[in-house]
Design a protein around this nucleic acid. Structure first.
Lengths: 253, 253
DNA sequence: GTACAACGTGCACAAACATGCACAAGTCGG
DNA sequence: CCGACTTGTGCATGTTTGTGCACGTTGTAC
């Protein structure tokens, strides 16, 4: 096993789990603890991870926070994300929205996947670094502290320059009459702009978002290709949507 | 379970529940009360929580950062970063380069600082999220995996749209004849473009970078306002640079 | 004021660590 | 084609660091 290969794997684990325990990895890969420690030391020197007693943590505490959260409660988000990840065809160009659900999509990606991912979330971009085969394009603009994504006029303008096959859209509410909604007007505009740049838009909405309405409308149902949700049997809201002609992709448990 | 991981979890609980009871956490995580108490003591010493009889309470996030730095002995990067942070005038617009040294600058910023920071590093952007008073503008473009910053034509173009008072530039080598250098040609071009957008450019170079030459030239000495480094007495290279008219800012220990 | 819980400290043990060394694989120049 | 050199890996060494227990002390509650 090559050193570079090993280090790439370490970074990947770091991004996925939010931590790496030296001894565990060594046992798993069948090599000495020393080699793993050496690698972690090098990565830390290069500023790509933070060395701690017993293993290593990601550089950005913000990332660790997210990783920790998803680790503690492996919830419906992960199931939805796994289903969404399967929509990404090798070689295609995909726009990834910001948010914890789309971040989970990154963690669900096969490590060997080759594609182009466009995003307006620095967090998503940072999480994609270990994925060697993924070309990442970051949309610039003013950073909105609330959700840590770029929004506003500059970001919308930057979006106009790109075209993609698929847009994975995160929302905070999916409601039969209110439609697809989110909590910030600028974010809504940005999501709308991104939807306009992709051939197909799929909405990622775990069960707790179904039937919920947030203040700002993002898109009409006519402009999306489908909603990915974890199937909690017969949700009445879901049935209502399906009757209205919205395509539902169930993410099995 | 890693010690750092445990402490992160404690902080998370602290933020979520507003308090932590030592005994409860110990039982929940299946470790001794002592370890939890030790962790809480350390966190309290670092100013990240307030120790009380039976557990701990959160402390205002604004105070936390200051205290944290006083305990941990600053390495040369931190000293350089702290000196650089003092160059940032409230209300000004600053371009922050990518890299571990500039990331250290973010950590060295006073929590109450109000300014605008432009960066091409998603990591820097994410780290700035907690700084309420800092307006963050992220430059979009292709993400370079090696150093996790945006580079290339699109990023350079995005840079043309902005203007700043100050640019804090990170390099991998400062050499008397080779000049200011870095390890990637695209990165060098991006750094050059950023330097062109700021009134003043200061180079951040901790001691181990002085006298080192990397493959690609970034800027001639004539175009920078000065170099910030930690003063390791009389480095011959440093003297040579000073003789050549380069302004040196010493970051005291 | 007494009882009990929480606390800090010292100590011993174990785990993780850095370092030096030896060996194998690969590279380069002769 | 061969030998000197470099590089990476694993092992053995001594050192550092974290952990849990025992003990005496301090704070809180009744």
């Amino acid at each position: 096993m090559l050193a570079a290969e090993r280090q790439a794997l370490l970074l990947e684990r770091l991004a996925r789990d939010g931590k790496v325990v030296a001894k565990e990895i060594a046992a798993e890969l069948g090599l000495s603890d020393d080699s793993v420690r050496r690698d972690l030391r090098e990565l830390a020197a290069a500023g790509r991870c933070q060395r701690v007693y017993g293993g290593a943590l990601p550089v950005s505490p913000a990332l660790a926070q997210y990783a920790e959260r998803t680790l503690v409660e492996p919830d419906s988000k992960d199931r939805v994300a796994a289903r969404a990840a399967r929509l990404i065809v090798p070689g295609s160009t995909v726009i990834l929205d910001g948010g914890t659900t789309t971040l989970a999509v990154v963690h669900a990606l096969p490590p060997t996947l080759t594609c182009t991912i466009i995003t307006h979330s620095p967090t998503i971009a940072a999480a994609l670094v270990p994925h060697e085969g993924v070309e990442v394009f970051l949309l610039g603009g003013r950073l909105f502290k609330h959700s840590a994504v770029t929004c506003g006029a500059a970001a919308v303008e930057a979006a106009q320059a790109i075209t993609a096959d698929l847009f994975l859209l995160g929302v905070t509410g999916v409601h039969p009459t209110a439609g697809l909604t989110t909590g910030d007007v600028e974010e809504a505009a940005m999501k709308r702009a991104l939807a306009g740049r992709a051939a197909d838009t799929f909405v990622l909405a775990s069960a707790e978002k179904i039937g919920v309405a947030s203040p700002y409308r993002v898109l009409p149902y006519a402009e999306i290709a489908g909603i990915i949700t974890d199937t909690t049997a017969d949700d009445p809201t879901l049935a209502e949507l399906r009757d209205a002609g919205v395509s539902i992709l169930a993410a099995g448990a």
